[in-house]
Amino acid sequence: MSDRSQLISTGKPFQYDQERDAEFERLIKRYPTRESMILPSLWLIQEQEGWISQEAIAYVADRIGTFASKVYEAVTFYTMYQLHPMGRHHICVCRTLSCWLRGKQEIIDYLKDEIGIIPGQIDEDGRFSLEEVECLGHCGTAPVVQVNGEFHEDMNVDKLKALLATLK
């Protein structure tokens, strides 16, 4: 999560599955330039694989018809693109203003104790990864936690405990 300079190779060629292939073809017609497909293509990889490998980057560069360096520039700039495998449950805790005012630190401290990792890490059995993120646009129901894209609002330690129990 934190080191965005290294690409990881899987040693296997990458390819979209049928569904992503169709979505790629639908989207490319929507833009006047092929390079506009860089961000959408990366999202499709991440949806399919959970993260973005060196081979996947080469694949989209080739398919779009652009330099791999352009794809690399985008993938390293945008922090939501994951450059290595994540935990099965990727937990993002908002650390910004309103969440900070309403107790985000308790949430972080509890998670650190409970799953034994600090933000930026993945636990040993790959069940959880943890990240502190910037304002998630849910400040009226702070503090906010996002797990695999799903929002959990008005969090407190009790709710968090119950939530963790459901994440196998």
């Binding site: 929507r30 961000l39 959408p40 990366l42 999202w43 945008y78 922090t79 939501m80 304002c135």
Partner: peptide, 12 residues
């Protein structure tokens, strides 16, 4: 009129 949704990826 065509409307296309373009997703960002975590950059304020």
């Amino acid at each position: 009129l065509d409307v296309t949704v373009h997703r960002g990826a975590g950059a304020y």
